[in-house]
Each structure stands twice: as C-alpha cells, then as structure tokens.
Amino acid sequence: MRHASLLTLAMAATWLMLSGYFIGMILTFGFISIILVVWMTKRLSILDNESVPYLNILKTCKYYIWLFIEIVKANIQVVKAVIGPNAEISPSLIKIPMHTDIDIAQTMFANSITLTPGTVSVDVQKDHILVHALLKEMSKPEDFYEMHCRSAKAVSIDLKDN
C-alpha cells in the first residue's frame, strides 16, 4: 500500500510538471491514466522496493553530489590529456573486485564508473568488473573501493566482507 501511494504521488508530480495546464479536462485525463498505471502495476505484482525506489531518494541525491565533484576532478585530467601538445596516455584493462551480488548495487557502481571520464566499465561479471582506464593515475583497483562503498550505501545495501 505504501508503494502504491508513493508511485501515485510521483506520477502526479511528473504529470503536473510536464503538462503545466490546470484545466479540469486535462487534470481528469491525468487522474485516469495514473489510476490505470497503478492498477496495471498491481496486477503485474511488481510493486516493490526495486520498481519504486523513492524511499532513499535523499541518500541518492547526496551520492550524486559527491559523484559530481569526482567527475569534475577527473574531467580536468582528461582535458589535459586531450589538449596537451605531446600528450601521453597509458590505457590499461583492470579487474575490480565487487563485494555484492545484488543487481541494483552492481548497476549503480558500474554506472558511476562509466560516468567518471577516464574509466569505462567494459564487462560486468558476477564478482568483478572489467574496466578500461585511460590514464595511469586512474588504474589502481584500491581507489575504486570508496566509490563502491558509497554507491552501495546510496541504495542502502550492505557490502559483504572480503
């Protein structure tokens, strides 16, 4: 029931934000479509924490602010590599161990690795990620552990001990 009401709230906010009209007919259309979607979601029985992830939205926002600062730092290094006159790069493929097997934590971690410029996640396996790193400073597997912890905390999942 809590998930259904949260989903209704989120969809109503999206409708009002995208349409911007407060006429009776348009609001009725929005009401009907929200009811339809909630009913269909309930019938498909996918109303759980994974399809309605609004409970820990504050933690996720905090994580994305931290990630933005990391992105800015990495961007400056990559820009130096692109524009410098005799720029040297040292690409490498590295394996980064993962201490979780829950889908959403893995997705969050691989997504934030790809978002940071200079590192791209190439292949995601059960217990490690294959990462292509552009520069030498970015190719240490220990440096990714902090990002792993923070991204798991952002979706409120505990890491396994290694």
Binding site: V72, V78, V79, V82, G118
Partner: peptide
C-alpha cells in the same frame, strides 16, 4: 577526432556527455 583507438575515444565522448 584525435585519440588513436576506439576504447580511448569512448572516454572523450563520455566527457562531452557528462560535464
């Protein structure tokens, strides 16, 4: 345009996409 191989070009494109 400038990077030598495909995987390094990914990084340059990602820089445009994010920041």
């Amino acid at each position: 345009l400038r990077f030598p191989d495909f995987y390094t070009r990914l990084h340059a494109a990602g820089m445009t996409d994010t920041l």
